[in-house]
Amino acid sequence: MIRILKFSFADLARSRWSYIYFAFYLVLGFTLLFLNESLGKAIVTLINVIIVLTPLIGTMFGTMYYYNSKEFTELLLAQPVKRSTIFLGQYLGLSLSLSGSLVVGLGIPFFVYGITKSGEIWDFGLLLVAGFFLTFIFVALSFNIALSNENRIKGFGYSILMWLFLAVIYDGLFLLSLMVFNDYPLDKASLFATVLNPIDLARILVLLKLDISALLGYTGAVFRKFFGTQLGLVTSFTILILWVVLPVLRIVRKAKKKDF
């Protein structure tokens, strides 16, 4: 597994796209800090970028990487290596290199601007953790889609649709249904709906730190318990982990049965 991981990692480390992605975050970090003058404001701007972009990049790269390395995967399949090892190795290699780009690319500018000595270090850290999870989740989801679709145009289409759905449409429907069922108590339902979408979940995780004062403005008891105690943090983390583990398990299961 380590060998396959090294394989994909080495392959990606030489890929132009990894550098572009890394450079993008580097430039983004410096630009935000330059324009905003304060770490706190830069972090707030960064929320949107992370919440929207890491899933998109994870999805695109995941699908692209799967299809592009298909022939090589076949070469690996003929080697004395377990199937699950091959796919997990590739998955981890890609996810780690993407999240590495994120952490290092943003870490450098924020470090230069003194994040380690500021009070915002935890906000920033939590943001990176959210980005880290989203990368792992969306690479896993896109691998799933690619594994189930031989046709790469279809695979790409489904992946982008999935991203669009989870990043935008889901929240639209969510908001719409909240407004339609306004007369009912909705706090449990809205928390539940949040948890079902990894992007929302990662967003909530960040809000817990950055917008807790607003979140506590709502009167519902379940809300108060979720956001006012450690329960929110623990639940969010647990479910994020599940969001990684379940798609990865499906990759393994699907890979075992698939013909190449």
Partner: peptide, 20 residues
């Protein structure tokens, strides 16, 4: 304005849809 009418929608704070 939406949060005033539907307080639960606060959970969508800072989501892309809300930004849009």
């Amino acid at each position: 304005y939406i949060v005033n009418k539907t307080p639960e929608s606060i959970v969508l704070l800072r989501s892309l849809f809300v930004d849009i």
